[in-house]
Amino acid sequence: MLCLRNITYEDKNRRIIENVNMTFREGITYSILGPNGAGKSTLAHIIMGVKKPTEGKVLLDERDITELSITERAKLGITLLWQEPARYEGITVEEYLTLGGKLNVSESELRRVFEIVGLPYELYCHRFVDKSLSGGERKRIELASVLLLKPKYAILDEPDSGLDITASDLIDRTLKYLGKIGTTVILITHYEKIAKKTEFSYFVCGGKVVRKGFSEEVVEYYKRACGKCPFLEGMSDDH
């Protein structure tokens, strides 16, 4: 079980996250839903160890992992699909997915994940993970990388961004595959349709958890709340 306990995060004296508590149980799909600037990606970065909280703890199976590095957390089974995956000159897709040969992956496994992310294996495995790939192609390759790691906890930060109209099917296939291997999914999105694909949701706004519960119910609340959001009042334009 992965827990955020009383997490607060400040950047340049600006409070981005305020006293957030979340619990993610094994094998369940969650979404963190909220408008742009709500603090969703910051929460993803706090779980992954990219950002250290100003206050609060990150617990994994009751162990405090707040001070652990990104690598240490990854070794404990947490990984992150980045909203904007980096480009790597001179590294082929196959090398990238196998982490330069460190990850032992069979060709059939590679083919399987290529199928899930909707890319033809032969056309992509020898291409470079550089600027020659479109944003959508890069995102799909990043998703393939997450699937190959078979993580215990997969944080998917806006997995649909930069993708074409087949994104919804891709997310369905991804959730199905991760569910099958027992991965807990934490899906970050501002689209209610994407959030509905998960079992439970946290609605985050203004750096706070506004609502939590079954996704259907939280999404309905989100649809009603956005437009007359109490957190928008008195907040800066970049909220």
């Binding site: 992954m48 990219v50 590095s69 990104i70 690598t71 957390r73 990854a74 070794k75 990984t79 992150l80 980045w82 904007e84 995956p85 980096a86 480009r87 790597y88 000159e89 001179g90 590294i91 090398e95 982490l99 330069g100 460190k102 990850l103 470079f128 990388s145 790691l149």
Partner: peptide
């Protein structure tokens, strides 16, 4: 960003740097 994204897959900072340099 390149380093952190590889570290989030379990590589140490040195391993990630090595892979990036090899590519470059």
């Amino acid at each position: 960003a390149q380093l952190m994204q590889l570290m989030a897959k379990g590589l140490t900072e040195d391993e990630a740097a090595g892979l990036i340099i090899r590519g470059l």
